[in-house]
Design a protein around this nucleic acid. Structure first.
Lengths: 202, 202
DNA sequence: GTAGTATGCTTAACAGCGTTAAGTGAATTC
DNA sequence: GAATTCACTTAACGCTGTTAAGCATACTAC
């Protein structure tokens, strides 16, 4: 009796269809500018159908973000496999920024926008989430530099967090202020990364 | 015939009342979580009355932010009047972060949240705005360091922008991710600022 | 002093939002 | 063939920012 499995497959396929439609709209128009009704229209179902597959709008987004940040995570993993720890770290930080600029709406939602008074403050960036996964790659890169005795500071988490803050700053500000008269985006990214690492080296 | 002036004063006073109510709500609960109806309730007028004094919700916020960032600007001005250019710069950057953490909702709205597809992308941070004013103070501090020959890079705007990006990063991430297990917020702020300046010095 | 107008505010409504309760028609089970 | 389950829809709730229209009060002019 394969009918049960067939129906299972159909359900899964609609679930994916919803996710695809939502991703497309979120990425191109931004989370806040996309309504459940518009997603429903795109897949040609009624709005309420979505709620049979996802708890609410934010869960849609969460799934899409985890998926995207899994890609960042594996990208970072490749990079940090290199030999020279300082160069790896630089490349990793650079990849982080480039990734954010490549998926500004994902980045916006995951790292820039409101936890405000919401419940799901800890939905993203908790133990085991893809965002945390990416952070742990950065941490590993820092650890290697510290263990090689390359830095004047030795608190690995302190360093990692300050680096994250700095690269987040470049990424976020370039995304949220695209009309500011930036001298040269690439130069600025490099300068931030170089300075923060240069400043750490003895 | 002072009646016209009296009415003028009354209008101005209600305008302020609206602004005060809106500021209080925005700062304590966040822009997105406050409705026009709630502001109206607080001042005991009908919601539509607000529209006789302000074009829309975003204009309310804009006025409040300009007001707040004027304070940041003057705070920075005091600081950057000091003698030792590097110390001034450090203090200025520190003051920037502290200010952001002191008024997280103002900061959020002005520097963190969506321009998305809106019209008023250039409402904040344009020539003559208080945000830009604050930036120009930072720029002045950098200029003094460059002219004193203290930095290995000499492009003043490039340096200023990379510094802004870095301190924005710390500020923003501490505001938006308050539940992340930060090692020590103050230490992280210091490390970012120290590193970025250390990295620039020859 | 009264008619006419301008001012300041309110009531009612529009079009949209996320979300839920109730209902419907077809497929599956017994 | 009847009962039940399943996938989905229709209608609605309560909220949002915002606008159009209306209604008193205060001011102006004759």
């Amino acid at each position: 009796m394969g009918s049960k499995e067939r129906r299972e497959r159909q359900k899964e396929s609609l679930r994916q269809e919803i996710l695809d439609a939502a991703r497309d709209l979120f990425v191109n128009e931004g989370y806040e500018n996309v309504s459940m009704r518009r997603i429903a229209e795109k897949i040609e179902y009624s709005p309420t159908t979505i709620y049979l597959y996802f708890q609410d709008k934010s869960e849609l987004l969460f799934n899409i973000c985890e998926e995207t940040f899994a890609r960042l995570s594996s990208r970072l993993e490749e990079i940090t496999r290199g030999d020279e720890p300082i160069q790896c770290l630089k490349k990793g930080l650079n990849a982080y920024v480039e990734f954010g600029l490549q998926y500004p709406n994902h980045y916006r939602v995951t790292f820039i926008n409101h936890p405000t008074h919401g419940i799901d403050k800890e939905r993203y960036m908790h133990e085991g989430s893809m965002g945390m996964n990416a952070y742990s790659h950065l941490r590993l890169g820092v650890e290697r530099c510290v263990q090689a005795g390359l830095f004047r500071v030795t608190d690995i988490d302190l360093i990692s967090q300050s680096m994250w803050a700095a690269v987040h700053g470049v990424t976020a500000i370039l995304i949220t202020k695209p009309h500011f008269p930036w001298v040269d985006k690439e130069k600025m990214i490099s300068l931030v990364i170089d300075n923060i690492i240069e400043g750490l080296m003895a």
